[in-house]
Computed example of a mutant assay.
Amino acid sequence: MKPTATRWAKSVALLAVVSILASCGLPRVGPNKREIYAGSVQKDGNAFVVSVDDHVTRAISVVPSFGFSDSFRHAAALGSDTIRAGDTLGLTVWENVDDGLLSNEGLNATVLEEVQVDGNGFVFVPYAGRIKAAGNTPEAIRRIITNKLADQTPDPQVQVRRLAGDGAAVSLMGAVGGQGVYPIERPTRTLSAMLARAGGVTIDPEVAQVRVLRGGQTGKIWFKDLYENPQMDIALRGGDRIVIEQDSRAFTALGATGQQARMKFEHQSLTAIEAIAQVGGLTPSASDPTGVFVMRDESASVANQVLGRNDLQGDQRMVYVLDLTQPNGIFIARDFTIRDGDTLYVTEAPFTQWNKVVAALTGSLTSITTADTAATALTGG
């Protein structure tokens, strides 16, 4: 009987050691499913734990979009023929005499290059005087100069050209091929044309954002949307500041995933299944595919819709549960939208924690010598 009693004693001692180790808090990646559910509102916690289904994916599918306001979209393109303060003009005057007012002897044409319109909108032309240019077209300025010179030289012929100047210019900054100040000219009246003129973007177009600052207003659009949807293009205005920047949205991956890190979005939209793939998938030897959680602060309007309520106010802590083992679990994860600031957490499988307990006792799953020795020591056998 003594050997039997000794074996029973060893077994009880071994279970005691296992219980002690399990309660001591073995290393793990984070809370298990039971602990997460314990923090739910239903159990006097402060977060709503929701199993994701088709209803939930539809309710949370609203993703903030970018676009320009009406004031941006309805602004007409600048006419390239309207002269503004700061513009530069090119003038050529032909005179019907050998020795004219402006031309040298033997020449009947005079070229005045880079005549800049001053801050008050005027230009000075010899023998024609100070002429109002801003607000006029090159044709109107041509007529004014012609009339002023007609009394001093017979049948003058005048040509006025609008050159590139800073009267209507925009600045481009950020991840663009050529940063700098560019004039708004006939080929570059729109945002897309100006970006092309500056060499396009130098980052992945999938995550490139275009921000336009005009006075006290700001508009933003995805670079890809700008080129795929011409109706989203806008006309530029002098003084516009155009900034090309990379998407700064990110989510955090924790738990039994291939990589635990803060991950930036690789596309305009990101689903749960894509986020899992982006971090290297689930850890094959440790993860629990029934315990994939997405945690976020949800707006009251969305939270009410998800929960079928109408009394919630303010942002709500939501814990969405994805079970990839369900028949349509992969499809639901594919339809579930990840948002900026989300935390993706995957729990460890129960076996993993048991494995750690056994490993702590024996050093490996294939040897129980140490456990037997520990039980013998406890029983004094």
Rank of each mutant, 00 (worst) to 15 (best):
M194T: 09
S301L: 11
V111Y: 10
E105H: 03
G178M: 12
S71L: 14
A164M: 07
D372A: 08
E228A: 14
F48V: 00
A277M: 02
D81V: 03
I242P: 00
N108D: 01
P154Q: 10
P3E: 12
A300G: 06
G121Y: 09
A168D: 09
A59H: 06
R339S: 11
S80L: 03
L213I: 14
S301E: 13
V158C: 03
G39R: 13
S40N: 11
I273L: 15
S171K: 13
A76R: 15
Q259W: 04
S364G: 09
K148C: 01
G199K: 12
V52M: 08
A360L: 01
E228H: 10
T369F: 07
G329L: 06
R84T: 10
A75M: 13
H267D: 14
R211V: 09
P3C: 05
V111H: 08
A272T: 14
F351R: 13
A235K: 00
V243F: 15
E35Y: 08
T252D: 06
G174P: 05
I234R: 06
Q278L: 11
F223V: 00
P126H: 05
V117D: 05
A75F: 12
I276R: 01
A150S: 14
I184M: 00
Q217E: 12
V117E: 05
I36W: 03
L191I: 03
P183A: 02
N310R: 13
R28C: 04
R211Y: 01
